[in-house]
Design a protein around this nucleic acid. Structure first.
Lengths: 146, 146
DNA sequence: GTTACATGTAATTAGTTTAGTTACATGTAC
DNA sequence: GTACATGTAACTAAACTAATTACATGTAAC
């Protein structure tokens, strides 16, 4: 099963807030761009808020970026929306047989290998910022409108 | 949601077949080491067979490695057990609003970024072989039995 | 050839997670 | 107080997982 689209939607939200800068980005407006329900957006914005990536206040329309564009990486978003709980990208089978050589050692062998793979993934995500995403979206817009 | 434990179990199975070399590794025997149902093991072995990693015949007890230990990487297992369908580790939200600058460009921007992260993960998995796993399990066994 | 036992696989189940939705409490501005 | 926004709880249908039961098929030994 793939990683939840909350991650992709989170990136979309932050990008939209920036591109729409100056105007108010309400959950309903964002939902119109993402093409989903405003409640879904509010839930994700709530997660981004908890992670300190956006500011948003009850009753006041619009969310704003809480940090500089170039200080928010995809990894920050990935962690904020909790698509991978507790750094556990890969499931390990529980309770292998301790009476078996392989059973009693396989977990300790596999866990560091999985961690390394996960770290490689996170490093890749950490090397891209929302600023990069915004620039690319605007660049594509310019090219396509020619 | 984490990646299915079929991956970890697949690694366990291949490792066990090697460590148990000389003896027959039936689905029931393997299930005893993994601590699950033999049908679960047979299903995973079926996937490993389709990927050309093991040989197994109806009616004849025991699966065997179809390739050299050092020629099977964790990436081979990962792909064999189909934990990530069609190279789609990350979900993209469908149908963003084409009437919005961000909506009509975000997918083309995000997809290559996700692919790069995925590739980093797969590269890490591709750098470890079942031989490495077997050696580590036996090494841990030696250390712990002292 | 039939008995014993293995693999192959379909069908069912309970438990999780996701994404969407409705409903409504709470907060802000005018 | 009216209009409108966010914050959330509750519920739903769909998808996937892991486990299980049941049984068809295949092999070997006698």
């Amino acid at each position: 099963m793939p990683i939840s689209s909350r991650f992709a939607v989170g990136i979309h939200i932050l990008t939209l807030i920036e591109v729409n800068k100056g105007n108010s980005s309400s959950s309903e407006y964002i939902a119109g761009s993402v093409n989903t329900n405003p409640v879904v957006i509010r839930r994700i914005i709530g997660m981004l808020k908890n992670a300190g990536l956006v500011t948003v206040r009850p009753g006041i329309a619009g969310a704003e970026l809480a940090k500089d564009l170039s200080d928010i990486t995809l990894l920050d978003v990935y962690k904020a929306v909790d698509v991978v709980h507790d750094q556990e990208l890969f499931s390990i089978h529980e309770n292998p047989n301790p009476a078996c050589t392989v059973g009693r050692n396989i977990q300790d062998t596999i866990i560091p290998l999985f961690s390394a793979a996960q770290l490689a993934l996170e490093k890749a995500l950490g090397s891209v910022t929302i600023e990069d995403v915004v620039k690319d979206v605007l660049e594509k817009e310019k090219v396509n409108s020619k």
